[in-house]
Computed example of a mutant assay.
Amino acid sequence: GAKIGFDKGQPGLIIWNENKWGKHTTGVVNLVFSCSSLDETYEQLKARGLDCQPPATMEYGGKEMNFRDPDGNGITLLEGAYC
């Protein structure tokens, strides 16, 4: 895939080959955010009542966690930078 953005560390668009990596959208929109510690973020969100699976290391080597917001939009959290 590729990230299209204006500045490193700023929001951007991520485009990937869904024929290879699968269709990732789980709701109306799929939003991707990065965080410095996915395990810590998972524990904080779980403590606040979020029903989600723990982070997983993906085939591409990155660590991520996926869940839906109350409106059904897909949220992906990635550990570290995603540029």
Rank of each mutant, 00 (worst) to 15 (best):
G1C: 14
K3D: 04
G5V: 05
K8C: 07
K8H: 09
G9H: 12
G9F: 14
Q10R: 07
P11R: 14
G12W: 06
L13S: 14
L13V: 15
I15P: 00
E18S: 13
K20H: 10
K20Y: 11
W21G: 01
W21I: 10
G22E: 08
K23Q: 09
K23V: 05
K23T: 14
T25C: 13
T25R: 13
T26L: 12
T26A: 10
V28H: 09
V28K: 08
V28M: 03
V28G: 09
V29K: 12
V29I: 15
V29W: 14
N30F: 10
N30A: 12
V32A: 06
S36W: 02
S36T: 15
S36C: 07
L38G: 07
L38E: 07
Y42E: 12
E43H: 03
G49D: 05
D51P: 00
D51K: 09
D51C: 00
C52R: 03
C52A: 15
Q53F: 06
P54Q: 11
P54T: 14
P54A: 08
P54W: 04
P55H: 11
A56M: 15
T57M: 11
T57N: 12
M58K: 05
E59K: 03
Y60C: 05
G61T: 03
G62V: 08
K63W: 11
K63C: 05
M65R: 03
N66S: 05
P70G: 00
P70H: 05
D71T: 06
D71E: 08
G72W: 02
N73C: 04
N73K: 04
N73V: 02
I75S: 01
T76M: 13
T76S: 06
L77N: 11
L77D: 13
L78W: 10
G80I: 04
A81G: 09
Y82E: 02
Y82H: 05
C83M: 02
C83G: 05
